[in-house]
Amino acid sequence: MSAPPGHVDRVFITGASSGIGAALAREYAARGATLGLLARRRERLDELLIELAASRPGQQRHHIYAVDVTDHAALARAAADFIQQEGGADIVIACAGISHGTLTERLEDQAVFDAMFATNVSAMPATFAPFIAPMKTRPTPCRLVGIGSVAGIRGVRGAGAYCASKAAVHSYCESLRLELRASNIRVVTLVPGYIDTSMTRNNRFPMPFLMSAERFAARAVAAIARGDSIRFLPWQMGVAARILRVLPNFLFDALFSRAPTKQRKGQP
């Protein structure tokens, strides 16, 4: 169920100022899409807007929104503005996310747990909700895209908040997919492995099958156009995820209980 020939997508992306979100923005802009770009940092959005304008001068107009996705009222206003300005959205990508190592025994990490769930999980339905009713009235296929992670397949030592938040994303998108199955809206779950972004460059452990953000974006856009229900990128991480799912607990625990951990917030 791909877009009809000649169709130019109107794409709304959260977490658009850096990493995967910015790479997706560049990929869609290169394909002629009109973008709604939302992120916390206005200066980064301004820089991205200048970059996109320079790459296709005079051919597109984009909209930027300096909004924290945890502010659901402001997020809804940004969505309403994009819908009003462009007549709706064909694709909405909830890409905003944060990642830190966490330890449950450290009381100061409770705030990190709360922030991660607010950004990675609760912001996703808040992102999608304003677009669903207008999308249902459109004759052409639409997409809602959630960004999960291979880290959501099994819990990893020292990353309880991130793993749990991404597992929640996977389950939420699956539920939403069933809710909207009878409509023209397809729900796509993208499951990145290790993607070369500022979020992963601080990792102090090996990252197998590391993929560039640009390569990820190109493959992600293809999966979104097809309406894939779930897509692991790179594909090798999908194979690893399937193995991890069926690995008995005793073996999983023996293999991963001493794995290196992700940096906690504020840790050098």
Rank of each mutant, 00 (worst) to 15 (best):
A123V: 13
A123R: 11
M124H: 10
M124N: 03
M124A: 03
P125S: 06
P125A: 09
T127Y: 11
T127M: 05
T127H: 09
T127W: 15
F128R: 04
F128E: 05
F128W: 04
A129L: 12
A129Q: 10
P130F: 12
P130W: 07
P130C: 14
P130H: 13
P130M: 13
F131W: 06
F131L: 13
F131C: 02
I132S: 13
I132Y: 02
P134L: 03
P134C: 11
M135H: 02
M135K: 00
M135F: 04
M135T: 05
K136C: 04
T137W: 13
R138P: 10
P139L: 14
P139D: 15
P141F: 13
P141K: 09
P141S: 04
P141V: 14
C142L: 09
R143Q: 10
L144G: 00
L144A: 01
L144P: 03
L144W: 01
L144M: 10
L144Q: 04
V145G: 13
G146H: 01
I147H: 03
I147C: 12
G148C: 00
G148H: 02
S149I: 12
S149C: 12
S149V: 05
V150K: 08
V150F: 14
A151N: 11
G152C: 12
G152Q: 09
G152T: 06
G152Y: 09
I153N: 11
I153E: 12
R154E: 09
G155N: 08
G155M: 03
G155E: 13
V156T: 02
G158H: 04
G158Y: 01
A159Q: 08
A159H: 02
G160M: 00
G160F: 06
G160H: 01
G160W: 09
G160C: 11
G160T: 08
A161C: 10
A161I: 02
Y162L: 11
Y162G: 03
C163L: 07
C163R: 04
C163K: 03
A164L: 11
S165T: 08
S165I: 04
S165F: 12
K166P: 14
K166Y: 05
K166N: 05
K166Q: 06
K166H: 11
A167P: 14
A167T: 06
A167S: 14
A167V: 00
A168F: 01
H170L: 05
H170P: 00
H170T: 07
S171F: 14
S171Y: 11
Y172K: 03
Y172N: 15
Y172Q: 07
Y172F: 15
C173P: 10
S175N: 08
S175V: 03
S175W: 06
S175A: 09
L176D: 03
L176P: 07
L176I: 03
L176T: 01
L176N: 06
R177H: 12
R177F: 08
R177W: 13
R177Y: 02
L178I: 02
L178T: 00
L178H: 05
L180Q: 05
L180G: 05
L180W: 08
L180F: 08
R181P: 02
R181I: 01
R181F: 01
R181W: 00
A182S: 15
A182L: 15
A182C: 11
A182Y: 07
S183V: 02
S183W: 06
N184I: 01
N184V: 04
I185P: 07
I185E: 11
R186I: 02
